[in-house]
């Protein structure tokens, strides 16, 4: 009997705070925002997370609870459910796999929790599920990258290879699609090679080495991200190819890539991850306060070349 009472009391103590603070404000009047991040160990994502932290540090009336899904959709689902239990007022999600999140979207609607999606563009059939999207259109990166490369290859044109991110990954697919759309407009440019570099420098290096060995005489290698592009340029260096013999293009403008820009790497595309994180947090904050926010918050990509790289360092 005693035990049962004890257990009941303990359960009440656990449930009570969540029951009281479930909707609306926290104990100390702060707005509580959940930030369900995809991965703390993905370098690009860490800049986005820094943007969220910046916002958190600048605003005293907000508390941001950040979670790391380790790139696992199931883990993220659990974490978002936990955030909802903790009573967040709005939630900023960088989805691992947005289609896996359908159950929480429903719960968010029931609880009146506003949803901001960041960085990874949801498919069209999910557009009704969230309140704000802040990010860039992946295809734009591929378009900007290929436009620069195609212009640099004129008037001769030539052959190009594309080193892609993980197959089936939205950014990898769309960046490649953007490349293809642009090259389709040029009669004198042909895509002769493609391979999966899995965002990885070593893998990108291996593929580029093999391509150089193959005698395909590629004029340009476009990579879905900078790490693979650095791999490709190290391969070109290793094969003693002259810097101007091959155009190498990346995406992300990471600090490492900027070091190589003009020294092997010819162009990269900057995705303002920091702004995505910061804007995502602002959107969540405004929504939590009941303010209205534009549904689409596009952060444009920017082409970075040795000429303008100083702005991005």
């Amino acid at each position: 009997m005693k035990k049962t009472v004890l257990v009941l009391v303990a359960m009440c103590m656990l449930i009570l705070p969540t029951a009281i603070f479930a909707n609306g404000q926290q104990e100390d009047g702060k707005i509580l925002i959940g930030a369900a991040m995809s991965s703390f160990s993905d370098k690009g994502q860490t800049y986005l997370q820094d943007g969220v932290r910046e916002f958190d540090a600048e605003n005293d009336d907000v508390e941001v609870l950040m979670t790391d899904a380790k790139d696992d959709a199931a883990v993220q689902l659990n974490q978002i459910e936990t955030l909802l239990v903790k009573g967040v007022d709005a939630i900023f999600i960088v989805p691992v796999d947005i289609s896996a999140l359908k159950p929480v979207f429903k719960k968010c609607k029931e609880d009146g929790v506003k949803v901001v999606i960041g960085n990874r563009m949801p498919a069209e059939e999910l557009w009704g599920e969230f309140d704000v999207y802040t990010g860039s259109e992946s295809i734009q990166a591929g378009i900007l990258q290929a436009e620069w490369v195609a212009e640099a290859m004129q008037p001769e044109g030539g052959k190009v290879g594309i080193i892609m991110g993980p197959l089936g990954h939205e950014a990898a697919r769309m960046r490649t699609e953007g490349n293809k759309q642009i090259f389709a407009k040029y009669d004198n440019i042909e895509i002769v090679m493609d391979a999966e570099g899995k965002w990885d420098r070593a893998k990108g290096m291996q593929i580029a080495e093999n391509w150089i060995q193959s005698g395909a005489n590629l004029d340009a290698v476009l990579c879905n991200n900078d790490e693979m592009a650095i791999g490709a340029l190290l391969a070109a260096e290793g094969a003693n190819l002259a810097d101007d013999a091959i155009i190498i293009a990346g995406v992300d403008a990471t600090p490492d890539a900027l070091e190589y820009l003009g020294a092997g790497l010819d162009v990269t595309v900057f995705q303002n991850m920091n702004a995505q994180g910061y804007n995502g947090a602002i959107a969540a904050y405004k929504l939590a306060k009941g303010e209205s926010v534009e549904k689409w918050d596009w952060i444009p990509f920017e082409t970075v070349t040795p000429e303008n790289m100083s702005e991005y360092k």
Partner: peptide, 16 residues
Amino acid sequence: LNNGMDLMGVNAYWQQ
């Protein structure tokens, strides 16, 4: 295998 398929330019999906 990896090398040969890259040399021949086998499509990334087929490579796997």
